[in-house]
């Protein structure tokens, strides 16, 4: 029997070198992801969530200062793989990425269908006809009419292009797809229909997802689990059910309270202050400065406390609960 765990991330760190000094974009992030599960990485801009995606895909910019940690996909330590093998064996075929503005990254002079079929022809050496037929199937799955296969990107609307990019990521049936803000540039209705398409894909193909977003409402659309990121660290990881009803970390609670809701009359409450700079993160708990529950122990960096089967929170308020090994 296969292991239920698809992806395990342990102590992942990614620091950039900038003119202001080292930026701790990802600082000791640990989580695991089961098969056919969707994890949402939720966080405000600049919290390091996109860097996390890049670190997982090994798409590192040139100014990397320091990386550490282990990423295990399907029992294989992909951090130890040489670049060439990672590219050949993992990228696209087992791990795909849809980036924020990737709908604008389609080649403007190649028909959409050809572009979507491309991974199959390159990775699996399929003939053109077979690859196009498969591309058509995936197109229908993500809700694009197969008429669009023969069109050029500029003939498609933004929403359609985003779906085409999604189809391209899915066509080789990777076990895990990382979606970095896949809908943030799109309209409400288009966003909703793309989220619908993702839900269908998840159900029918059993693909696992990591959805990276800043939008709390979007995060609840796909996530089985939610990982909340703040200043380069995961402050809470929980099942969605638990996260949206009883968040444990003060930041989680305040973030939920700050979200304006359509169907509730309660007034949203703002979180005072600003997130800390990742170039010089404060010692101790990084949220302490904005936290109303702050007390003496917050001067020390809290470990991730285990609150349940798969629930961790990085906050001293939960120190009574048994500490978990490693980070959240």
């Amino acid at each position: 029997m296969r292991d239920r765990t698809l992806l395990r991330v342990e102590g992942l760190e990614l620091h950039y070198q900038t003119r202001q000094g080292a930026v701790h974009a990802v600082d000791g992030v640990s989580f695991d992801l089961h098969r056919q599960e969707a994890l949402v990485v939720l966080g405000e801009s600049g919290c390091g969530k996109s860097s996390l995606a890049k670190a997982l895909m090994r798409l590192l910019p040139r100014n990397v200062h320091h990386t550490a940690g282990r990423v295990t996909l399907d029992g294989v330590d992909v951090t130890a793989l040489p670049d060439e093998r990672f590219r050949r064996e993992v990228q696209w075929s087992r791990l795909a990425l849809v980036m924020q503005a990737s709908m604008n990254a389609l080649n403007p002079v190649v028909r959409v269908g050809e572009q979507v079929a491309e991974p199959l022809r390159v990775l699996r050496g399929w003939p053109r006809g077979k690859a196009l037929a498969r591309a058509a199937e995936v197109f229908e799955l993500v809700g694009v009419s197969t008429d669009f296969l023969a069109r050029y990107p500029f003939e498609l609307s933004g929403g359609m292009r985003q779906r085409a990019v999604l189809a391209m990521a899915l066509v080789a049936e990777p076990a895990l797809v990382i979606l970095d803000e896949p809908t943030s540039a799109l309209d409400v209705l288009t966003q909703a229909s793309i989220m619908n398409a993702l839900k269908r894909v998840k159900r029918e193909l059993g693909t696992s997802f990591i959805l990276i977003t800043h939008d709390v409402a979007t995060s609840s659309e796909l996530g089985d689990r939610v990982a909340l990121m703040y200043a380069g660290q995961l402050v809470e990881v929980a099942d969605a059910e638990r996260f949206f009803t009883e968040p444990a970390h003060p930041y989680s609670r305040m973030l939920m309270a700050s979200v304006p809701r359509l169907r509730q009359r309660a007034r949203p409450e703002a979180i005072p202050g600003e997130p800390p700079s990742l170039a010089a993160p404060p010692g101790g708990c990084r949220y302490a400065e904005r936290c109303p529950y702050r007390f003496a122990r917050c001067a020390q960096d809290p470990p991730a406390f285990r609150l349940g089967e798969r629930h961790r929170a990085r906050c001293w308020l939960h120190a009574d609960d048994a500490p978990a090994g490693g980070g959240a």
Partner: peptide, 13 residues
């Protein structure tokens, strides 16, 4: 089309 944060969102279209 607008979702309010709710874990049930994930299971319905």
């Amino acid at each position: 089309a607008i979702a309010d944060p709710d874990a049930a969102n994930a299971t319905r279209l």
